[in-house]
């Protein structure tokens, strides 16, 4: 079991460990990138807390990872990573949640950060992560006939798929 460096966490993000202490799984500071791994169940609350209280105003990026071929094996197969930035304090934090292979689901944060909308759609398109509560979770980059999720490690890089039908009459 990894020891959590509460001092590090407290010095960087005061109040965070008080609030989410029991849900923090690991904290690391590799090459100066503060990374906090938390339980998926509190992710939405944690992001709201970071935005409102600690003033991390920008959600720079949301993306997924597939650790199935990583050595050593990780807690779960999938991870979703949230890169946050505070314009007012000029600092960053990275939140990471691990998701189960059979049911990669997490709550959407599109209403917390407007930028999350497309990033979540992309993570769904490329990795098949389901964002619960997302208003329009459809493919964004691949064509509509695409089957599977190409950035998963078990998808071949040249697994070319033909378009079978015309694009659906896209209405508003």
């Amino acid at each position: 079991m990894l020891e959590i460096d509460t001092n590090l966490l407290e010095s960087k993000l005061p109040g965070f460990s008080n609030r989410f202490g029991k849900d923090v799984l690991t904290v690391s500071d590799h090459r100066g990138d503060l990374t906090i791994e938390i339980q998926p169940s509190v992710l939405r609350d944690a992001l709201m807390f970071l935005k409102a209280t600690l003033r991390f105003e920008i959600l720079m990026d949301v993306f997924a990872m597939d650790y199935s071929k990583f050595d050593p094996p990780t807690r779960e197969r999938f991870a979703v990573i949230y890169n946050l930035y505070s314009v007012s304090q000029q600092r960053r934090v990275r939140l990471k949640v691990f998701l189960n292979e059979d049911k990669p689901e997490i709550e959407s944060v599109h209403d917390v950060y407007a930028s999350a909308n497309w990033f979540e759609r992309e993570a769904w398109d490329l990795f098949g992560i389901v964002f619960k509560g997302h208003p329009h979770l459809v493919r964004i980059l691949c064509h509509h006939d695409f089957e599977g999720h190409p950035l998963r490690k078990d998808y071949p890089s040249d697994g070319y798929q033909r378009l079978k039908s015309a694009s659906p009459a896209a209405g508003i």
């Binding site: 980059l141 190409p150 071949p156 070319y160």
Partner: peptide, 8 residues
């Protein structure tokens, strides 16, 4: 681009 989405 010998890739899954690029026409050859």
């Amino acid at each position: 681009y010998r890739a899954y989405h690029v026409m050859q």
